[in-house]
Amino acid sequence: MTAAPAELVFTKRSVTHSLRNIDSLVTAIVAPVAIMLLFVTVFGAALDTTVGGAYADYVTPGVMLLCAGFGAALTATSIHTDVSKGFIERLRTMPVRASGVIFGHVFASVLRNLASTAVVMLVAVALGFRPTASPAQWAGIAALLAAYILVFTLIAAAWGLAAASVDSAGMFSFIALFLPYLSTAFIPVENLPDFLEGFAAHQPVTLVIESLRGLATGDPDAGTTLRAALWLAALGAAATVLTVALFRRAARR
């Protein structure tokens, strides 16, 4: 089996495992949808004045990232399971690149989480989300979401390789779920406690959310989008280097 077909086989394997893991699949979609329903239907009327417009338009980009990040974080558990159960070690005795398993997990995560994010967006439209983006801006939204999912998946891959147990690998899901709450996902930064404002204003999740919000409303800010792209590029490069190093360390065990 050549390297390229092997990558595709492992991608298909990862997607198949995701579809069979009903609990994780439902959680990755239902949790963000439930959060969307909660904030828009319960708190939306009260928060419309806080955000200066329809709350559904404000909150949707943040919930999309919450969905994407949480789904990508599940990769940590999948990769740790493959390592701990010896699946990757068995591949080393075969004419297949064992690193293709990591590629399969990463690529499948991007595909899977783009689909689940699209579901969240459809729910948001049903709740009143009215984007005014042009076709080019929609392409920017898709590219930014894909980059965010890729970066979070790479970080999750490194976390899964470094984790000592399945439980510790699963902890990354809580981090991914928690980060959007410390951003402008749900309320503007000036409405956060003073000690959180600095972090929330400059952390990468906020920059990506504000970029998506600007693109969705047809009024993107080039500076914010550039800073978001630079953050994602830096985090992605660091996560890639760390994943490669941890994978090699795992091979020497």
Rank of each mutant, 00 (worst) to 15 (best):
H80Q: 03
V123H: 08
T132E: 01
T41W: 12
R20S: 00
G62T: 11
F178C: 11
H105N: 14
F152E: 01
T27L: 03
L154D: 02
A147S: 12
A34H: 03
A222M: 14
F10M: 09
L144T: 07
I175V: 15
A200F: 03
L177R: 05
L111E: 06
I175Y: 04
V30C: 02
L127W: 07
N21S: 10
A233F: 09
A164V: 06
F103S: 10
I141Y: 07
G140K: 01
F172C: 06
Y148R: 00
L66Q: 06
A133M: 06
V9R: 12
A146G: 05
I79H: 00
T184V: 13
T93K: 07
T243A: 12
S14E: 03
T240H: 05
S183W: 06
F107S: 03
A118D: 01
A222P: 15
V63R: 14
Y55A: 09
A73N: 00
H80Y: 02
E197R: 14
G44S: 07
A4T: 04
R253D: 04
V189S: 01
T16Q: 13
S78V: 10
F195G: 11
V51G: 04
T93W: 02
H17Q: 12
E210C: 00
V9E: 11
A201I: 13
A234R: 05
Y58H: 13
Q137L: 04
L161Y: 03
G44W: 07
F199C: 01
V205F: 13
D48L: 02
A234D: 08
T27C: 06
A176Q: 09
V83M: 13
A237F: 07
L161I: 03
L8A: 08
L66T: 13
R20M: 04
Y148V: 02
V63C: 11
F10Y: 06
F172M: 07
G71Y: 00
K85P: 10
L114D: 04
V40Y: 09
A239F: 08
S109Q: 05
T153E: 00
R213W: 14
P180G: 02
I149E: 10
S24Y: 08
G100H: 10
G214V: 02
A146M: 10
Q203C: 12
A239I: 07
A164K: 04
I88V: 11
D57L: 03
M64E: 00
T41Y: 12
A45Y: 03
T240N: 02
L232F: 00
L37K: 13
S165G: 04
N113H: 03
T217D: 15
T153S: 12
D48I: 09
H17G: 05
L19N: 00
A176V: 09
S168H: 09
G198A: 04
Q203W: 13
E197K: 15
G62D: 15
L38H: 08
L74T: 13
G236M: 12
L177C: 10
L91H: 09
L91Y: 03
V101D: 11
S165N: 14
A143E: 01
E190T: 13
D57Q: 12
A245K: 06
L215F: 06
S116D: 12
R130S: 11
L196V: 15
M94K: 09
A124K: 12
L38M: 13
I175T: 15
N191H: 15
G71F: 04
A250V: 13
I141A: 05
A185R: 11
E7P: 10
D219F: 15
S134L: 03
P180D: 01
Y148N: 07
T217A: 15
R13L: 00
